[in-house]
Amino acid sequence: MDPLVVVRGKQGGDHMGGMRAAGRVFISYAHDDERHIAQVGQFHEFLVGRGVAADLDVPASERRQDWALWMLRGIRDSRHVIVVASPEYKRRAEGDARPGEGLGVQWEARLLRNLVYADAEAALERIVPVVLPGRSAGELPLWLSPYTDTVVSVDKFTEDGADELLGLLGLLKGRPKPAAPRVSPAAAFVMPDRKELVGALLDVPALHRSGTRHELLEVMGQSLGLPRRFEVPESDDARTHLRALDSRIRRTTHLADAACTAMYVALDEIVPDDTGVEKVRALLVRCGLVLPEK
């Protein structure tokens, strides 16, 4: 099981009354390798050094635990959930782990996806994606919208290097320095004109086949952390079906930018190196969407 760190505010419980009371924070990370484990350990020590009382999974493991319940309570009772970026976290949290591999991350990710699915706006405030030195936002699971939502970078384990996170947790001394507003590049994104988007999708030959469109919806659902495919009314006619997809994206409970990102990533996975897919990408980028590098 991947280790977890549970960090409790110095006054205990979920108290958030003062700027020095961090509340309860649940930190989830994967066991990529010894170097990453050590780095997360240093991150934990840094938080402890900032006056946060911390419980590691190590003391908890000294007696038998119902680990699934332990993780559930940690996430349920936390004020913030910190997700630490790494390749293995992304792979396991996106459902690509082999059976029996990284069960801790897989279980946590399932719980967190449920929070995102139930209330994306509330999850945006509660779940804090963190990138430690040497890591990147691309190592976060796609359902956390790492290219369109704010990601907190910790450049060094110092007050200056982690000021955004410390401000978010209310741990800055003296005058409180709040975290940067959770405004992302997505603020500049505007949904493409309906006719343009449907036209670009129709330029992908594979999408004229109903089987490919159904696969697209399945992969979109997985990318967004949904328990099922991205639901769109059925139609044998490609244009009608893609118009329905456009309408569904515009009214989705997920942000439209996240749905468009999932759509493009799914297309690129299903029909890579397709000129039509490149047209879709160009259209979305022109409308302000930040997409992963090819």
Rank of each mutant, 00 (worst) to 15 (best):
A137M: 06
R135N: 11
T212E: 14
K173R: 15
P178H: 14
G211P: 07
G134Q: 06
K173D: 15
L140E: 04
P185N: 15
V154F: 05
G199K: 00
E215Q: 12
F157K: 02
L132F: 11
L142I: 02
L171A: 09
A187L: 09
L168P: 02
L124C: 04
S136L: 05
A120G: 11
E218Y: 01
R126A: 11
P205T: 01
V131I: 15
D163N: 08
A180H: 13
A187H: 13
R213Y: 04
A120Y: 15
G170Y: 05
L124Y: 01
L115Y: 08
L172D: 09
S145C: 14
R126E: 09
A200F: 03
P133A: 01
T158E: 13
T150K: 00
P185F: 06
L171R: 05
V183P: 03
H208Y: 05
Y147F: 15
E196P: 01
P178G: 09
P133H: 06
L216M: 03
M220N: 00
T150C: 00
K173G: 11
S136F: 03
R228T: 11
S184V: 11
R135A: 15
K195R: 15
L165V: 07
V190G: 11
R182S: 10
L202F: 03
R126V: 09
D119A: 06
V152W: 01
A180I: 09
E139G: 07
P181D: 07
K173W: 07
D155K: 13
T150P: 03
R209T: 01
